[in-house]
């Protein structure tokens, strides 16, 4: 499974201009204001694996996803897909690449055009890439509906006739219709009930096995991530603070924020594990704390953390950006 790299992201950064309109700025003598949604994010996704990004609301998960599929332009950084640098401005070259990746969205009620029939929705990528024609399209749509557990007769219905879980199946069928290798899934089950979530997660796994798909899975739910992914990246205020193999991350988290996230997961096993109460809330991303952005909430905070941004240090199966991790390393070397 640890095959070649399918997607490589280097130094991805995205700033949003959130200044007031020009006139207001002049009148109020306000400065231009920027919000850094992502800063210097780098990771690799290997062919056939599921790489997960976790983080709380506003940590920049969706922004990364949107930059990768070309919905947002990066302010800095590069994205390589199967060795090709993605340049969304170039038409013909990009068209070929575009067919090979797809996206599944969070809200199954907003992700399907309410005025289109399900068949037309699923066929849109087929038409856009000119993959099939005429009756073949109808047959292919029927096959895709079967594949995701619906029936080919559903092609003639409108989205409002389906439940949330069924709509998410339709969205998956649409994503599969261009026969992609890589699918970005932004919170694909957060809007669903657990019993429906189980169906969708199982379906995603089955499809991955059948077609050798590679997933970038975005979620704030650690249990889902644990269940689905091979490797995991943890985001805090737009920066990747830790990357590790899934098992290692859960058994031996390195970064204090990762540990805190794990502690916050309610204990369904009723093991009586007393959770360490997490303190504080995510700071305002417009004006993040200097040094390590996590320092106001960190139980291990040191003086250096307040001034210097920690650099990524290699860990057993990935890396973590934390002065305390580095210090530990130094200790253990001694």
């Amino acid at each position: 499974m640890s095959g070649d790299v399918l997607l490589r992201v280097e130094g991805l950064t995205r700033r949003f201009d959130i200044s007031k309109p020009w006139l207001n700025r002049v009148v109020e003598r306000a400065q231009k204001q920027y919000l850094t949604a992502n800063a210097d994010v780098s990771f690799e996704i290997r062919r056939g694996e599921t790489f997960a990004l976790v983080g709380e609301s506003g940590s920049g998960k969706s922004t990364i996803a949107k930059m990768i599929v070309g919905l947002l332009e990066p302010s800095a950084g590069r994205i390589h897909f199967d060795g090709h640098e993605m340049d969304f401005a170039s038409g013909a070259e990009m068209r070929k690449l575009r067919r090979r990746f797809q996206m599944i969205f969070q809200d199954p009620f907003a992700s399907l055009n309410p005025r289109w029939r399900v068949g037309d929705i699923i066929a849109e990528p087929i038409h856009t890439f000119g993959l099939l024609k005429g009756a073949e399209v109808t047959r292919e749509v029927g096959r895709l509906l079967d594949l995701v557990g619906l029936s080919s007769a559903d092609a003639g219905k409108f989205p409002h006739e389906f439940s949330g879980g069924q709509r998410q199946r339709i969205a998956i069928a649409r994503a599969l219709s261009s026969k992609p290798e890589f699918i970005v899934c932004d919170e694909p089950t957060s809007a669903l009930d657990v019993s429906v979530q189980a169906q969708i997660l199982n379906l995603m796994r089955d499809l991955q096995d059948e077609f050798g798909l590679t997933y970038l899975l975005i979620s704030h739910d650690l249990s889902v991530v644990r269940h689905m992914s091979n490797r995991i990246g943890v985001l805090y205020l737009g920066r990747l603070v830790e990357v590790a193999e899934a098992r290692a991350l859960f058994t031996d988290p390195q970064h204090p924020y990762t540990r805190m996230l794990l502690d916050a997961v309610p204990d369904l096993a009723l093991s009586g594990r007393r959770r360490r109460p997490v303190t504080g809330e995510i700071p305002n991303p417009i004006d993040p704390p200097p040094g390590c952005a996590f320092h106001p909430r960190c139980p291990l905070v040191m003086d250096v953390c307040r001034q210097t941004l920690p650099q990524p240090r290699a860990t057993a199966s990935g890396h973590a950006s934390c002065h305390a991790v580095a210090a530990q390393d130094a200790l253990s070397v001694d």
Binding site: V194, S195, Q197, A198, Q199, L201, N202, R205, L222, S223, V224, R226, H227, F250, L262, V265, L268, A269
Partner: peptide
């Protein structure tokens, strides 16, 4: 149907 942090199940 609830995934957990402790158990590793394929499905």
């Amino acid at each position: 149907s609830i995934p957990t942090l402790t158990q590793e199940a394929a499905r």
